[in-house]
Design a protein around this nucleic acid. Structure first.
Lengths: 213, 213, 213, 213
DNA sequence: GATGAATGAGAGTTCATTCAT
DNA sequence: GATGAATGAACTCTCATTCAT
């Protein structure tokens, strides 16, 4: 299931892309302000710059809008990650860079990601797994980097621990969006530094910690 | 603003407590299944065991139900925390216990907490700060424990770092609810152990980590 | 159909009178402020100083309250008219006095009468004729006075004209309630004087007027 | 604030006019039968010939219907008055004609005006002044005619008396709607003749009357 | 392809009335 | 006689969706 899977009565692919861009942009703005359920399709159409009739030429239902929004956001996030994060060289250095980079991406796409985390639960039974999969794909990057560290002997983690740690890291970075209210006092730089310390510290000292538990 | 602040036309306090318990229990179940917006007041009334008219004798609007749900959950979580977490003795040992205990509470109240994190954004402008405050109160417990560690010289953190770390810990523990889909492979015990390793490792090695960054 | 016709489950007549007085007083106040339909039975009960359950011990339905209110108002108006208006002596002088007196009564019972004229249409099919009858009874007083004038030869009106003129007079006096917004500029005295001039002028000159038409 | 001030989600002005005509016509009928409060929006929609959804495309709330009804009635009344009443020539003759004409208009629009006088009180705080203003506008026509009489020396009235007398006349004419139940015995012609006698007699004899009071 | 008027199921909420206590 | 919790029919209003133009 991918972007094309949302059926359309319009044939011109170029136009579809254009209209959906307008739509997603408008929807993210509206969902950010008032949430998915409190936003009406009329509002989405109006903010997109076309009529309600036209909106329904490019989607089958309001749920499709949410799906397109989530899909678009993941697309962007993944693109940026692939552009900016290289999985090679020194494992730990690579990880540190990746964390900083990912937090920066999270910061740039703050509203979008917040919308996604708050509304994803409203996705249809069919769309949700697809979206969660994209999230796992993203986690994969961190798993790869952690794998690099393991391979080079920098850290000692079994496979299940690697998977867990990737999630651990992602959640910490995303916290910048969903716990914003509790982090008002910190700048992006401070937050980044503290997260790197906390995460990487935890990682490198696991063996010692395990002994002491 | 506390529980009593939601106005009622019913006067019998005992009855109010009873009916609201029924209501909150029913609402949590329904919100878990289909979310706040997709649940109708009629469904809440029915699941509570009384009529729609009776429901509205105990609340003024649907939003009140959400508020009562959040309020009730925090009340329970805080009660359990105060019952089970002692802030005294060896700081690090205390912290380890606290993490394990908190994760256990999170696990027991999984549905409730999930509902809260997903729907809190729908709270009214007046209720939201109240609820966020309860969350900060909860974070306070971890700040206190970290303070204990700092005092005893077990870890070296400045005040802002303490506040940050408390949030860091809370988010990691709560992850057991909102990232459940990504943690299917782990038992509660495994998850707890890994989090303790990750968090406490990170903590004790911060000085070292800072040097190496 | 009279006051007693509104059935009660309470037997003590004294109590019935007392409770209904409270009720009517409260209802007039509320109906004045927000109209019959926008006033709830709960509000009436509360303003009356007893519970909703008690309210329904003294009425069968909300409509009964309106009936009791109208009935009570007519009772008061008629009592005052009978107290203060004498149908004897010089016809025209008597009429002039009656007009002034009636306007005074209208002024004293402004809110009550306004409520009645605005809400009477909501009376049940059975109550309305009864209330309208009371109004005709009131008009009867003016018919009697006009009869006095005719008998003494002061004015020359046939019977149908007498009936019409009584209505004409009553409407002009009541105008002080229902056209208040258009009469803001006048004092009660000015209004009274102008009405007397207008009405009595019309009356005494009818023969002449008829010729000129 | 005029007809257009009631917001619509429909853009086609022609259609708005048409639908609102249907709506007002239906509403007047229903309000006449059962009053504003006892009429439901669904009934209005149905009687208008469209669905409840469509009704709400042309109004924002039920109150708007009442406003549109009142506005429409005044529009019609004023149009007819301007068509049929000329303020020129012999003052008294003009006045006599105006009274007869206005009573005829009142008779033609009996139900409409009755609705208005009974329900206007339910208009919103913003609409009421607008509607009362229209009524004063109407009174202005009679003030002008009376002014004509004063100028030509046919009657001797000061300005405040002129304003009062205009109200006096209007109320007498409208009485044909709101006191119908008391005027059953008279034909329109009889009523008209009697009112002309009563009003014009009062008017022309005022100087004389004042002396005798 | 684009439009927007029309639809009606369904949502939240109110309130007159009842009846066990 | 008094109380007030419970009831549910009925109300106003919304909004996703369709389809003729």
């Amino acid at each position: 299931m991918d972007k094309k899977s949302v059926e359309t009565s319009v044939k011109n692919e170029e136009l579809i892309r254009k209209r959906r861009d307008q739509m997603v942009k408008a929807a993210v703005k509206l969902f950010t302000e008032k949430g998915f359920h409190r936003t009406t399709t009329r509002e989405i159409a109006k903010a997109s710059g076309f009529s309600i009739g036209t909106l329904y030429e490019y989607i089958r239902s309001k749920d499709d809008v949410l799906y397109l929004v989530c899909d678009d956001i993941y697309r962007q996030v993944n693109t940026r990650i692939k552009e900016k994060i290289d999985v090679k060289g020194d494992g730990l250095a690579c990880l540190k860079d990746a964390i900083a980079t990912y937090i920066k991406i999270v910061d740039e796409m703050r509203s979008e990601m917040l919308v996604m985390y708050q509304e994803a639960k409203s996705l249809s039974k069919e769309s949700l797994p697809y979206v969660l999969n994209k999230e796992l794909e993203m986690a994969g990057v961190f798993e790869d980097i952690l794998g690099l560290c393991v391979q080079s002997g920098q850290i000692g983690l079994a496979e299940p621990e690697v998977r867990f740690f990737a999630q651990h890291i992602i959640v910490q970075c995303q916290m910048w969006t969903f716990r914003r209210w509790a982090l008002r006092g910190y700048t992006l730089e401070e937050f980044t530094q503290m997260q790197i310390n906390a995460i990487m510290g935890g990682l490198t000292s696991i063996n010692k910690a395990e002994l002491s538990v």
